[in-house]
Nucleic acid binder design. Structure first.
Lengths: 226, 226
DNA sequence: TCAAAAGTGTTAGAGGTACACCCATGG
DNA sequence: CCATGGGTGTACCTCTAACACTTTTGA
């Protein structure tokens, strides 16, 4: 089996959402060269017996203590010069995490782990900026045709939270009435007998996304679209 | 730099189209174990100094003699047991080729290279069936929102060729008038002063897809959609 | 009673979908 | 003149997009 020394890592772009308009990304501060003290995506080498997904989840757990609520493969980056040490190909993943999982408990590798606002990112190690840009595009595109936005909200949420999330992600205003109509027309939300009263104003009814219903609809060819 | 021995390959799912209703995939017959004499996707190990794309294109050239007209990354497959020899991660690519490039001239590795109809595929080596299924899904989805179908037709084509292609890929009938109206409404086709007369019937006007126009529209946020 | 956020319907226009006949050519 | 495939227009209906006032609560 011939092959030059090509190494394989996995990296994760994990998004969080902070009401009302902050999209967050989880980064770690590198403790070693190259790019010592630069911020970088969590990730690392895959173990020989674990799947790529298991590798990402393990690295995330080790470096930041978080567990994602949603994970999918994003893209593989393999430019020959992307890492100064050696030829390293990174299979990158795209993760989403609900607000209640946002606390960080870094343990092993990472000197620090921290959430950054997407529009206030620090300078990044390697080609991680490129990876993040791709992840943001994917997120923006994907929320218009798959109901993944719910993975950025807690299980119970109000319509205005959902609306703020979409406004933030799409970067443009949304008509509240049309939005509510459209979302409700999918029949995928369960309205709870519960309201949230915080701050001033009328209390908001809380809803729950019915994932199981979505999955069964999906098989029968239902489409979720904007 | 710790890491178990993980190897990296690239594989390509290359599609061709044969009028009026055959979608083709390019396969090679394996000359060595494991899976000796099974059909498999063209691909192989990446050289240390070449990019992943260069690797795919080189392997394709070596094994089948074809040059793709379109290439994009598909997905990376990395289940620990996908190759019986060792842990091998495959970064798979998705290629399209115009009809005039369909002739095969296998040269180095491959005992044979051959086009197969998608609905008459042989048993495949490794997890290549899985990769192909993913590629077909991607192709089906993508032709509805990006003008990649043109990469499966020669530069000059008639509307009925385009219509047959879409019918084949989508697996459902298309209304000729609505289809023509929609496609023309994008303003991306140039009608040539040329017709094709073959077989019986009225000669068909030929068209050309204006890629450069598409790319400049794209920057200004135009959408191509079904 | 005021401020703040939640909740609610209608209308005009655009776009999608369904549908059938004439045209140009070769044999 | 017949067979074969190419080319064309209209009407309905659905879905989208625009738009403003009332309700509920806490202070």
């Amino acid at each position: 089996m011939k092959q030059g020394h090509i190494f394989l890592t996995v990296d994760a772009v994990v998004f969080g959402y902070e009401a009302p308009d902050n999209l967050l990304i989880l980064l770690i501060k590198r403790g070693v060269d190259p790019y010592k003290d630069f911020w970088a995506l969590p990730g690392g080498f895959v173990k020989e017996e674990e799947s790529l997904e298991e590798g990402v989840e393990r690295e995330l757990q080790e470096e930041t203590g978080v567990q994602v609520d949603y994970l999918e493969q994003l893209y593989s980056f393999g430019a020959p010069d992307r890492d100064p040490r050696a030829r390293i190909v990174s299979v990158s993943y795209f993760g989403l995490i609900k607000p209640k999982g946002l606390e960080l408990k870094p343990s092993t590798d990472a000197a620090e782990a921290q959430w950054f606002r997407v529009n206030k990112l620090p300078e990044l190690a390697f080609d991680h900026k490129l990876i993040i840009d791709k992840a943001i595009s994917r997120l923006r595109a994907k929320i218009t045709y798959e109901p993944i936005g719910f993975e950025l909200l807690n299980e119970k949420f109000s319509f205005s939270e959902l609306e703020n999330l979409y406004t933030t992600l799409l970067g443009r205003p949304i008509d509240r009435r049309n939005f509510r109509k459209k979302i409700l027309s999918f029949g995928l939300l369960e309205q709870l007998d519960e309201q949230r009263k915080e701050g001033p104003g009328r209390p908001a009814s809380l809803f729950k996304f019915q994932m199981s219903k979505y999955k069964s609809y999906q098989k029968n060819g239902l489409y979720f679209e904007l």
